[in-house]
Design a protein around this nucleic acid. Structure first.
Lengths: 218, 218
DNA sequence: ATATTATGTTAGACTAATCTAACAAAATAA
DNA sequence: TTATTTTGTTAGATTAGTCTAACATAATAT
């Protein structure tokens, strides 16, 4: 079976590829917080094991095999996060750290059972899609809030890079998934937005915040 | 924090000490399925880290510090087993393997939450006591079934060394914890017992089986 | 009391995963 | 186009945890 280390490299490769297209040694190095020489030698070893294609000075690419393995690790992570929130009462800001550990457990039945108990959720507590057992992901159709215009009404369906601080900020403003948001105006100066939702008739959200909110148009 | 390896050594030391009093390198070696030289050097390192007292050719003894750490690993293991049975619907024969992995998760809140959701269980699915947060164990008062005599009535409260095969055997005979068993007779020849319980009016249990059944007298 | 068996130790090697220092190649800017 | 910066590589060391082979000590049996 794959070591936690290999699982972490696969996961990072998968996520970085989704975020930025091409992935190089430096990206992986900073994303995993591991030195570049270490990443360099690990990538060679991942190549030998068939998880990636790699040539000196070229971008690193997951093989089909690697892509699927990565998706399955992400599946374990997101199922765990959802289970922690839905069945164990944790807040969405607390689950990432625990899931980082639980995702390395090698016991398919354990995760299948979580899945079943939650009635096969499609997304995790931050709105990210949960890959299926074959490693396939249904890519949701979303728009970034900061790309919307005044007057539009949207539903919050997911978050972009949800750090603990960001999640706590959202909590403090009563912002949660599935929230219906109305854009009252957009500041030309700093691209902040004045929005209303539920019992909040006027809240200002900075561009930094709006860039991380993924919505669907109504 | 402690590595999974260290946690496994501590757990084994704790259990072996409970089963046989003194623990030596050979015991640990076979119990962990690791070579004797490896155990020898690991024990030296555990000594340096303050988990055990050790002198060449002498038995290995957990320090108070080590004893407590071991109990806390066992707490994580047993809470997990109970959670898997009570909240996730696994059978008692399936939980050990999963718990062997989950026990190494470093997230006290995760286990505290399990504990709370189950309303602070005192024993795991095999009747073994769950150490408290301070590493204290309430030693249950039990008798081994094979030490009982014909005519006695007992309650099954725990199992001794519950392997998957043993648990499946018990399942096949409808034997479970809290079962009230009446000893009808004891064979002098092979120490097997003829017993009755629930809707089983006469079952014969070999000495090997009876030695693993821990009971309380009624 | 000595021979045999069981147990423990030393020495030396291996693998996975990491690091730093130094250098090389590629990309970017002047 | 050359200089600078960013990115990548090589070489060599380190740590945790493991192994086998060989030898030493202790316990057990004859």
């Amino acid at each position: 079976m794959n070591s936690p280390t290999v699982e972490n490299y696969l996961k990072a490769l998968y996520s970085l590829a989704n975020e930025q297209g091409e992935v190089n040694i430096s990206n992986l190095s900073s994303s995993l917080d591991v030195s570049k020489p270490t990443v360099n030698s690990m990538v060679k070893s991942l190549q030998q094991q068939g998880w990636v294609h790699y040539e000196k000075y070229k971008p690193i690419k997951l093989t089909e095999h690697g892509r699927k393995a990565a998706a399955l690790v992400i599946r374990k992570h997101r199922l765990t996060e959802m289970f922690l929130v839905e069945k164990m009462g944790f807040g969405w800001e607390a689950v990432h750290e625990i899931a980082e550990q639980v995702e390395h457990i090698q016991a398919p039945l354990f995760f299948d059972r979580m899945d079943e108990l939650m009635d096969y959720p499609k997304v995790d507590p931050h709105g990210s899609p949960i890959p299926d057992k074959d490693g396939n992901v249904i890519q949701q159709q979303y728009k970034i809030l900061s790309d919307c215009k005044a007057g539009e009404e949207v539903n919050l369906i997911a978050l972009n890079q949800s750090s603990k601080e960001f999640l706590e900020f959202l909590d403090s403003r009563g912002i949660h998934l599935k929230l219906k948001i109305t854009i009252k105006s957009v500041e030309l100066f700093d691209h902040s937005m004045v929005v209303s939702y539920e019992n909040h008739s006027s809240e200002t959200l900075s561009q930094k915040v709006c860039e991380r909110l993924l919505v669907e148009q109504l």
